[in-house]
Amino acid sequence: MIRKTSIAVVCCAVLSSVPLFAHHGGNLYDTTKAKVMKGTVTKFEWGTPHNQIYYDVKTDKGEVEHWVASTEPAGVMLERGWTRRSLKPGDEVTVYIFAAKNGATVGNLQKIVLADGKELTAGGPGPADAAQPPAGRQ
């Protein structure tokens, strides 16, 4: 059930250009690079204030790490094509997250790729960034 470890830290220009998420404590995550890992979904919570995706990752040492990735709330993810049935326990996935700076096994989801190649993105025209003021101002 647990896939072989494949944790890689990838400097990803595309992902790092995604606007900062409004997740609570969003400044606690390293948004300069996405951590990419393969794992198995153990639980998918669909709701507010944010969705949570629980997944297990097997390390090179054979240990199992329990990760939690957070997304925007359900209403926003509906706009991005997600539903509460998008993920289910047992799904083998490749996860791209901005991980906690302190090494905790939590992070903000950027995208997730299912075993059949289907890609679910968590980014989009999200929270305003100071560098991108609304059109018509400044």
Partner: peptide
């Protein structure tokens, strides 16, 4: 729903991201 510029952190037009 929120469009260009997103939903933001600050009401300030000059600093919607709250930096």
């Amino acid at each position: 729903t929120f469009g260009a510029g997103g939903f933001g952190q600050s009401l300030s037009a000059a600093d919607p991201g709250g930096r």
